[in-house]
């Protein structure tokens, strides 16, 4: 299933959209986008773009692992925001909606590139993040570090890990540790409850640790 199917306006969580709109720093610009057209709309959208471009690009860059794919994913995300902003109803923070679109765009790009992966290394630790990696045998899922992957620089190892583990796990780690979102905000981005976030984060941590052990960087 394509992640683009998850881009519909956010589901209601029972919170008054007016209150969320008042507390959302992007609300004024978003409403300008929704109530203007032509050059006024382009100007308002550009302000919105400036506000979110770095966050969107960072998420896409860390999930895809390279700048070219990050640029493609960021472009797709910004186009999706442009086309769907009229349907945004402030049932969540606007930034959560933007993060959701960016994460989905980056994951889509990663999956499209998996047919021709750079360096021939397949995405590690399985394709389905819902599977419990803790129950898998170490022999089967042990990464096969190439000379390229065996690096002593810890930052490079972590960067590689984000680009190689399951992209949904990468997205979780990026949102939590790079973008600094709370678990509640991640739940809002992923449209799930806190328990699900907790479970997925546990698996993401396991995947990251397993990768780092495989490349000899477990002692960071």
């Amino acid at each position: 299933m394509s992640n683009s199917e998850n881009l519909e306006p956010e589901s209601s969580r029972g919170r008054p959209s007016e209150v969320l709109a008042l507390n959302d720093p992007a609300a004024a610009i978003v409403k300008r986008c929704q109530t203007t057209s032509g050059s006024d709309f382009a100007e308002a959208y550009h302000e919105l773009f400036v506000l979110f471009q770095d966050r969107v690009f960072t998420v896409c860059f860390r999930v895809t692992g390279n700048r070219d794919d990050a640029l493609d994913a960021s472009q797709e995300a910004m186009v999706a925001i442009l086309r769907r902003i009229q349907g945004f109803e402030f049932r969540s923070k606007f930034s959560s909606w933007v993060y959701r679109i960016a994460v989905n765009a980056a994951i889509d790009i990663r999956r499209r590139r998996m047919d021709a992966p750079r360096g021939g290394v397949r995405t590690l630790l399985g394709a389905d993040p819902e599977e419990d990696v803790a129950e898998r045998s170490d022999a089967r899922y042990q990464p096969e570090p190439s000379a390229e992957l065996v690096r002593t620089e810890s930052r490079e190892a972590v960067r590689e890990a984000l680009a190689r583990i399951n992209p949904k796990f990468s997205a979780l780690l990026v949102l939590r540790y790079i973008e600094g979102l709370s678990y509640e905000e991640i739940a809002e981005v992923q449209e799930c409850n806190l328990g699900t976030v907790k479970s997925r984060m546990h698996r993401a941590h396991s995947a990251l640790r397993t990768f780092l052990e495989g490349v000899g960087a477990q002692d960071i």
Partner: peptide, 19 residues
């Protein structure tokens, strides 16, 4: 150490080409 390295990967600047 892993947490520190993860947090240091933030702050990317989108290239002008994106706009």
């Amino acid at each position: 150490g892993v947490l520190e390295e993860l947090r240091s990967l933030g702050g990317e600047v989108a290239p002008p080409e994106l706009w």
